[in-house]
């Protein structure tokens, strides 16, 4: 069941097409990576999901219904470019944003207390925003995003500007939210985070969708049948002639197999020659490599 479904979305600014017939589904309860180079149209897509902008053509469905105003209260959005009112106090600011998401004053008050406690920052309640460091205000911004307990979270570069400790804190929070069944759209340039965090991704470039799928499935789909084997001993002459060796170091080989062959065949060969294998594994492409390759070929 998909929580969100984008169907043939088109958005133009003047003559520039920011979204060109984009369709994809975001499954409920998954962490979904929305990837693409700068200017690919990610923010435009997010803005249409958050109803800041409206598509020129196409439909967005939320839980099977046409996306409408009532759904905005079930979405939490943390934009890449973040900001808060500098003169407001942390507590009143969070309550304000929560109330704009439909919470009553007392509900909002309770949630604010809960989250400040959770992050162990209760003493920030009466601090004014301008006193906070960047990392601190980032935390406040994160709380503002999740405070109304949304079903769908949209996090645009949530780790930018955070030190490793706070990054870890937010990351753990994202996983915790995911475990409780929240759907999360995660937009970033940092591909190592994608592999770590996302279940599924969609890749856009120049307003078009160029790739989508599960992270594991994509790595399989784009694998090049490369295997690395490390061993003890000396390779007998002529042994490599039958193999397509991509690179060879001392005691280590990277070999490409033609499709249809199995890794066991290579192992077999080494065993026959009585060479001791110390490690053997298939090399799968990183999401970063897939990203770069796909963007280049779509350009």
């Amino acid at each position: 069941m998909s929580l969100l479904s984008l169907q043939h979305i088109v958005k133009q600014y003047g003559t520039y097409t920011a979204s060109d017939d984009v369709s994809f589904d975001i499954p409920a309860g998954k962490i979904f990576g929305l990837l693409g180079p700068n200017g690919a149209g990610k923010t435009t897509l997010i803005r249409m999901i958050t109803r800041i902008l409206y598509p020129d053509a196409g439909h967005i469905l939320f839980n099977g219904e046409a996306l409408a105003e009532k759904h905005t209260e079930r979405i939490g959005y943390m934009p890449e470019e973040r900001g808060l009112y500098k003169k407001m106090k942390v507590g009143e600011h969070l309550i304000y944003l929560a109330r704009l998401k439909g919470l009553s004053k007392s509900e909002a008050q309770g949630k604010v207390n809960h989250w400040l406690q959770k992050f162990q920052i209760e003493d920030w309640y009466h601090k004014s925003i301008e006193e906070l460091s960047k990392g601190m205000s980032q935390k406040v911004q994160f709380i503002a995003t999740v405070i109304h307990d949304p079903d769908l979270l949209i996090l645009d570069e949530p780790f930018s500007g955070l030190d490793p400790i706070n990054s870890k804190l937010i990351e753990e929070e994202i996983f915790a939210l995911s475990r409780t069944g929240k759907t999360i759209i995660f937009s970033t340039h940092r591909m190592e985070q994608v592999e770590e965090i996302c279940n599924e991704i969609v890749l856009v470039n120049k307003g078009r969708k160029i790739l989508e799928g599960g992270v594991k499935e994509l790595k399989q789909r784009f694998k090049e049948h490369l295997f690395r084997i490390t061993y003890q001993g000396t390779l007998p002459d002529g042994m490599l002639e039958k193999l397509e060796v991509v690179s060879a170091d001392t005691q280590s080989l990277t070999v490409r197999f033609a499709a249809g062959h199995k890794g066991n065949e290579l192992l077999q060969l080494f065993i026959e020659k009585n060479l001791e294998v110390t490690s053997f594994n298939e090399i799968l492409p990183s999401i970063n490599e897939i990203f770069i390759r796909q963007v280049h070929s779509s350009n």
Binding site: P79, Q141, A144
Partner: peptide, 8 residues
Amino acid sequence: IVEVLTSS
């Protein structure tokens, strides 16, 4: 902040 506000 307007981006957060306009999403609400």
